Simulated scan of single mutants.
Amino acid sequence: MRAKTLKRAVVAFALALPGVAIATVVAAPPAHADGCYTWKRNLYQGRSGDDVRQLQIRVAGWAGTRDIVENDGRYGPKTAAAVKRFQSAYGLKADGVAGPQTYTKLYALQDNDCTPRHFSYQELDAGCGRGGWSGGPLSATKTKANALRTMWKLEALRRDLGDKPLLVTSGFRSKDCNQQVGGASDSQHLYGTAADLVPRDSSLCDAARAARDHGFSGIYGPGYPDHGDHVHVDSRRENNSDQTSNTTVWSAPNCGIGTSGD
């Protein structure tokens, strides 16, 4: 007999006995993605370790306007601020301390492969239909890790847009794939740090404007050449393998967005 069925049977039997008082039965917390990652302690400013790094991956999309959350394993002010924004977005106590309530929400959002609920590796690995994470400037392992961080940023952007679907039309591209589709030679798609998006129930401009608050240092949208039908977002500031790692470039003129960010 399964544990849940046995528990119900015991309670039912006890209820049938006269004079037996039944204490309130507290349900076990819902199952979560143990196959991915489980936090063992509260995290707050001053703490460090791999558990902080794992948290930083998941709150990277709550960095705030023109900012990023470094994936360095150190719980500093930027990480605390991102956690606060995450907590506020999901109706939690916004104290910047990652504890049981914050983890429960993260568990509810993540799948066993650590991807967020609404995005998948398959979506981010366009690859011109070839699959796999090799063929770019970085190792397949690093490229896939970049794509995971990108997905968590997209999850935050999706939340900001009212949990309205975002269709990813292009993610990682190998060098051959990038050349085939006519991508720039230094495209962020080569690193797993970029995605082209088409919102289903909101406008392109809404997506481009909101992306400014979610850790994306590269945004191209309506008004930028060849971007009238999608929004491109990337994390070039975090990509230390190219020459644009410390720059922020936003251009969607038809949405009132220029390189100044306004």
Rank of each mutant, 00 (worst) to 15 (best):
Q56F: 03
P77Y: 05
L92F: 00
V59A: 05
P77F: 09
R66W: 13
A89Y: 06
Q87N: 05
L55G: 05
R85C: 11
V97R: 03
V59K: 11
A82D: 05
R85Y: 14
N71K: 11
A94F: 06
D50W: 03
R58F: 05
A98W: 03
V52I: 12
G64A: 04
D72M: 01
R53D: 01
L55D: 06
D51W: 03
R74F: 12
R58E: 13
I68V: 14
K93I: 08
D51V: 10
G73T: 10
Y90L: 04
W62I: 03
R66V: 02
K84A: 05
I57Y: 13
S88K: 14
N71C: 06
G96M: 03
A89W: 00
G73H: 08
L92M: 06
R58P: 06
R58M: 12
R58Q: 09
V97P: 01
D51N: 09
G91R: 10
I57A: 01
S88N: 15
A81R: 02
V69H: 09
D67F: 07
A60L: 07
A80L: 10
R66I: 00
V97Q: 15
L55K: 00
I68K: 04
D50R: 12
A89F: 11
T79Q: 00
R53V: 02
V69D: 10
K78A: 14
V97I: 14
D67R: 15
V97M: 08
D51T: 12
Q87Y: 08
D72K: 08
L55F: 09
G91N: 09
N71Q: 14
V52N: 07
V52Q: 02
Q54M: 08
L92T: 03
S88P: 03
N71Y: 08
E70G: 02
Y75Q: 09
S88T: 12
R66N: 15
G64I: 03
G73F: 08
T79N: 01
A63D: 01
G96N: 04
I57F: 10
F86H: 02
A82Q: 09
D95N: 15
K78R: 02
I57W: 15
R66H: 15
A60H: 06
D51M: 12
V59M: 00
D72F: 12
R85K: 15
R53Y: 04
R66K: 15
K93V: 13
N71E: 13
G91D: 13
D51F: 03
V69Y: 05
V59L: 05
T65L: 10
V97T: 10
D95I: 08
D51I: 04
R74A: 10
F86P: 01
G96E: 00
Y75G: 01
L92S: 04
F86I: 07
A60K: 00
Q87H: 09
Q54E: 14
A81C: 07
A94H: 05
V97S: 11
D50K: 13
E70P: 10
A60P: 00
G73M: 04
Y75I: 06
R74K: 13
G91W: 14
G91V: 12
Q54P: 00
R58C: 10
A63K: 09
R53G: 13
D50N: 15
R58T: 12
Q87F: 02
Q56A: 08
S88V: 03
Y75D: 03
G91P: 08
Q56Y: 10
